[in-house]
Design a protein around this nucleic acid. Sequence first.
DNA 1: CAGTGGTCTAGACCACTTT
DNA 2: AAGTGGTCTAGACCACTGT
Lengths: 237, 237
Amino acid sequence: MNPKYLYVYNEVADKIENGEFSSNAKLPSEAQMMKKYGVSRDTIRKALTLLEQDGYIQKIKGKGSFVLDINTFDFPISGLTTFKELENKIGKKSRTIVKELELIHPNYFLMKQLKISKEDQVWKVVRIREIDGEKIILDKDFFRKKYVPVLTKEICQNSIYEYLEKQLDLKISFARKEIVAREATQQDKRYLDLQDYDMVIVVKNFVYLEDISLFQYTESRHRPDKFKFVDFARRKF
Amino acid sequence: MNPKYLYVYNEVADKIENGEFSSNAKLPSEAQMMKKYGVSRDTIRKALTLLEQDGYIQKIKGKGSFVLDINTFDFPISGLTTFKELENKIGKKSRTIVKELELIHPNYFLMKQLKISKEDQVWKVVRIREIDGEKIILDKDFFRKKYVPVLTKEICQNSIYEYLEKQLDLKISFARKEIVAREATQQDKRYLDLQDYDMVIVVKNFVYLEDISLFQYTESRHRPDKFKFVDFARRKF
DNA sequence: CAGTGGTCTAGACCACTTT
DNA sequence: AAGTGGTCTAGACCACTGT
């Protein structure tokens, strides 16, 4: 039983992505959409506001709502997009190799990052992402055992997120991301096809559940030439 | 005459930043805030929704709204933050050196990026950003003359954005950002203090006005060790 | 059970753009 | 003047959390 405004959001977003509403086209006015969907104006406005925030449309006072260009070609979309989602988008041959999977006690760094004590147990997962036969991304994930009691190699080979959300029913609500460049470590060089690069782009991810508990810390280490981050930002008033 | 919900948003955001509402604290309930500010529930909810989107708070059904940690120390905040704003935040000695300022006809690359014809004129501005005596960022800006008729060296030395928004009254509404790593060019090496680094982090920025016209393209080229990008992302439903 | 946030409605007035 | 989106209100019912 999804909310009505999400139904409208999804329908319009789909039409934009499919090209049924083409770039720069004017959407139906709020009044027209009220009739079409048989809902109140507020519900339509909620859907349109979301579409605007996500970069699908731009509302212009007195004129209407207009479809923005979506760069379907730019792949690593901002937000919380996971590797599994990316895979589908780029449609290239890709493979995940699980290098390490173990239950550990946190070292000082992890204790600080995850804000936990030495007694807490943490799953450590190290995976290599291969695209078109090249080992390009090194993913290190740390999950608190408190939230993820069981983890298997099979789950890690597929999407951990799917497991967390669909099986464990954990609700991820937001994340803080940090992007920096770092000198490649010995581990980077051993695990990845770094060619002549001596740096990696590091994306740190702090993932929070709905109740504000920090349950995962992730580090994604990318070969520089294969890294790309795309962001959509609205000016604050 | 600002809207009421923005008034509430700003007051609460300020209190969070000043520590009057400390981390993990529970905000007053919506009912209490209605009384306090003498506005309707919808107005309060609009303010709280904005605060949630911007990463200030987390709303939890049945419980209340809670203040999130804000990393005041992480400086390059996501969004459209400009160098001038950054300067104030980090509070370090910094300097802007204007290397080039001229009116040009676009080359093929710019024609494509800005979606303009060869006849359109474009301001080209090349600036070096120095922090703590080190030349760290190379900024290349291209503005369509159609929107920015006049540009002087003095304006470029200060904040171009302040000039555009306050003097020319151009309303910036959103931007698309792209972050990649690239081999350093001869120009990078000549203008910046790159030490031994042979790469730069390139942030490309496509800036749009309120009427969806693309009026600026910017390339910021950063020395890898001094680059940091912080993002806050909410899961899409 | 009372208190919380989430969704939805119907109606009002305003500011801006177009005809 | 007509049409558009922006703000604000008052009231309703729901789902979830705590006691």
